[in-house]
Design a protein around this nucleic acid. Structure first.
Length: 738
DNA sequence: AGCACGCCGACT
DNA sequence: GTCGGCGTGCTC
């Protein structure tokens, strides 16, 4: 009888794998296969990490049942996860858990089921088209002319399922189930579906620079907004596809809009797959199989897409590489950019980082010569860069508008633009009606009972909401302390500005775009379409509006409250503000009309603001200045940081646990060079959802020393058992401060 | 993380 | 007497 011993990684917070006997002749090629095992009296699914280990413990090994005949997790993904586990101090078994789609995690089969699609069920002639009024219905019929399309794809391209259903009802289209087979490699003939537009010389040179290299190399494409970065990606992707290789495209959650998908679906004949939050578990698995078996040539996805096994991976593109949504802030606290670069290195293929506002980390790596930077300085299609104008709020009269964030000067400008029929975009990064509610008599401020946070006033449904834990309270009639009924709303949010704008410009359509007013993708589409169709001239929104979307007729962009993002104790505040403003400014004047950007501030002399509005001073110039400051203060990227995090529902328990750990750390921290640790401190917001949060910040100039130190910290924690009700985590390379 | 084991308090 | 609270320790 042959019996092989394998190591299995399990979804448990344990930094070791467990040995099992497997009743089958298997080899190293089975690394990555799932097995069913009994672990501590329960049945679990684990992943084989080693084959043919010796049983050097005296325990009688249990038996593992093989689930997969062959591993679908590619070697590069396994190596990337092993790196990630070490680098981010997170157990390998739990890393696998994050990396696998839910259905596979739970033991489901690695195979397709029937995939719902639409196909035409009669000839569509002019007569039929005449009877159809809906543009979307016509567009669907047009797309279906070339063959059936998956319902998932139609959804991604912005069509409503109700539009599809209307066509089904008219018996013009029918639902069919596509039966896909695994391992149907995409054809490298006729890659293109449409002829690409003419690229300009700058774009061509960027394309050429990347194309001539097919080994591991990191490129930063630093292209100003409107310079046609996406076109550059598409050309390079085309070239990779022609070689029969596949491409991974990582994008921030926010940019998964129909336009993004359309760009890829329209351009390539090659199947395109996707990973994003709007997919069902089954659809996620389908995309996973598409890529692992080489059925699709392109995967577009958010940060989790970095874990998808890809047959013949030839290129990774990370669009908007500075975007903070590539960082996961719970469980496996990885940065998708870091893992993607490691994956490309393992896989020996190039990586393209694209951004108009690269992160300081990435720029620093360019200066060190680790990445090569390609600049795109001209706006494709000849659109000119906008003019900047500051409004000095200290010189503005105190009007009703000013209390709602709009100075007299800005109001006049909005009036002028909209009178011409031009569109304006107003940006305010604060949702809700009012910042907080205060008692006029005793000064009591309404706060969240579960968090150390003030409650935001929302007028719709008459409620107060905590933006930390999302708890909603009905707005009170009186002060709970002094019973006074005069309660004042202080500070303004998008909801209030929206109300004011409606009164002030009653004849102009206004679209408010934030998390409260836009709860589904479709709602966002409807609003954006009203803007594109010119039905609405004013857009008011939060972050949601800052990125990705193209509005050719927007001639003016205004930042209502830049001051609040400027004065913040986070050392990244300046970088984030510079990125935000540059991105927002990029929304103006993308069409033929020249755009302007208006910034309201009480701090007219602020250096950063003046740099931002100075046409002689580019984002890179500002970033260079910020890098200088970071260097002087020895802050990242000139040093590496990690947080040791701990929280508990009992305040003392969390504090004592970390203090204890801190004492132990002090006994060995001097074995590591250039390491600085802070005392145990409360988080900025100590209480969140009734749990008390504490941290220790570790800073080190050497990445490797830091890693070794953190491993010892983690081992120290493992020696004792973490008490009940204590949550403990290590966060490496944090981008948010605690 | 789960789950079992074990050692003390407040019940029928 | 016993049910169950959760602190402690282990999982191939």
């Amino acid at each position: 009888m042959t019996s092989t011993i394998v190591n299995v990684a399990l979804n448990r917070p344990l930094f070791k794998e467990f040995a099992y006997v497997i009743n089958k002749e298997i080899s190293d090629s089975h690394i990555g296969c799932r097995v069913k095992v009994n672990f501590a009296n329960s049945t679990m699914i684990g992943v084989i990490t080693k084959v043919g280990v010796k049983n050097n413990s005296s325990i009688k090994l249990k038996e593992a049942t093989l689930i997969d005949e062959q591993s679908f997790i590619t070697d590069d993904v396994i190596k990337m996860l092993e790196f990630g586990s070490n680098y981010y101090q997170y157990p390998l078994g739990q890393c696998f858990n994050v990396a696998l789609p839910k259905l596979l995690r739970e033991g489901g089969a690695f195979s397709y089921e029937k995939i719902p699609a639409l196909q035409l069920c009669c000839n569509i002639d002019g007569e039929i088209l005449k009877k159809i009024k809906s543009d979307d219905q016509k567009r669907i019929l047009d797309l279906l002319k070339t063959g059936p399309i998956q319902r998932k794809e139609l959804r991604e391209r912005g069509f409503l399922s109700s539009t599809e259903n209307a066509l089904i009802k008219k018996k013009l289209v029918e639902i069919i189930n596509i039966e896909k087979k695994e391992n149907e490699a995409f054809s490298t003939e006729n890659i293109l579906k449409e002829t690409p537009p003419q690229a300009n010389t700058e774009q061509l040179s960027a394309i050429y620079t990347v194309q001539k290299n097919s080994d591991f190399k990191v490129f930063l494409i630093n292209g100003i907004t409107g310079s046609g970065k996406t076109e550059v990606y598409l050309r390079i992707i085309e070239d990779v596809l022609k070689k029969g290789k596949s491409v991974l495209v990582l994008v921030p959650e926010i940019s998964l809009t129909p336009q993004t998908f359309d760009r890829f679906y329209r351009r390539f004949n090659v199947p395109v797959s996707s990973v994003h939050s709007a997919l069902s578990d089954r659809e996620r698995l389908d995309s996973y199989i598409d890529m692992a078996t080489g059925n699709s040539g392109i995967l577009i996805g958010t940060r989790t897409a970095v874990f998808t096994p890809i047959k013949n991976l030839g290129l990774i593109v990370i669009d908007e590489e500075h975007d903070s949504s590539f960082k996961q802030n719970d469980t496996f606290r990885y940065h998708a950019r870091t893992l993607a670069i490691m994956r490309a290195k393992i896989n020996n293929c190039p990586v393209i980082l694209g951004s108009a506002t690269p992160s300081l980390e990435t720029l620093f790596n360019c200066y060190k010569g680790l990445y090569s930077r390609i600049d795109l300085k001209y706006r494709a299609g000849g659109a000119s860069y906008p003019d900047f104008e500051l409004i000095d709020l200290t010189k503005e009269p105190v009007t009703e508008g000013l209390n709602k964030g709009l100075s007299q000067t800005l109001e006049d400008r909005i009036g002028e633009e909209t009178a011409k029929g031009d569109q304006v975009l107003l940006f305010l990064n604060r949702r809700g009606y009012a910042h907080h509610l205060v008692c006029h008599l005793c000064g009591h401020v309404f706060t969240c009972p579960n968090c150390d946070n003030i409650l935001t006033v929302h007028k719709t449904n008459h409620r107060l909401q905590c933006h930390i834990c999302d708890t909603i309270f009905t707005a009170p009639e009186k002060c709970p302390v002094c019973e006074n009924t005069q309660l004042f709303e202080q500070g303004f949010g998008t909801e209030q500005v929206n109300d004011y704008l409606k009164d002030r410009y009653p004849d102009v359509g206004i679209e408010r775009i934030d998390r409260d007013s836009v709860t589904t993708k479709n709602q966002l589409e409807i609003r954006l379409n009203r803007v594109r169709d010119g039905k609405s001239l004013i857009m008011l929104g939060t972050q949601m509006l800052a990125k990705g979307h193209d509005f050719p007729n927007v001639t003016m962009v205004a930042m209502l409250d830049i001051d609040s993002s400027l004065f913040c104790d986070d050392f990244r505040a300046m970088e984030n503000t510079a990125q935000l403003l540059t991105q927002v400014a990029g929304r103006a004047g993308r069409g033929t009309k020249k755009g302007k950007v208006i910034i309201q501030t009480h701090h007219i002399d602020n250096e950063l603001i003046n740099d931002l509005i100075n046409p002689q001073c580019s984002y890179i110039d500002i970033a260079n200045k910020l890098l200088e400051t970071r260097k002087k203060l020895s802050l990242p990227p000139y040093s590496y940081q990690a947080f040791i995090l701990c929280n508990s529902s009992i305040r003392n328990k969390a504090f004592n646990f970390l203090s204890n750990l801190s004492d132990k750390i002090k006994t060995f921290k001097d074995n590591y060079s250039n390491l600085v640790i802070t005392p145990v401190m409360s988080d900025k917001m100590e209480k969140i959802q009734n749990r008390f949060h504490f941290h220790i910040l570790v800073t080190c100039t050497d990445r490797n020393e830091l890693r070794k130190f953190l491993t010892q910290v983690r081992n120290t924690v493992e020696e004792q058992t973490v008490p009940n009700d204590i949550r403990f985590a290590i966060e490496v390379d944090p981008i948010a401060m605690y």
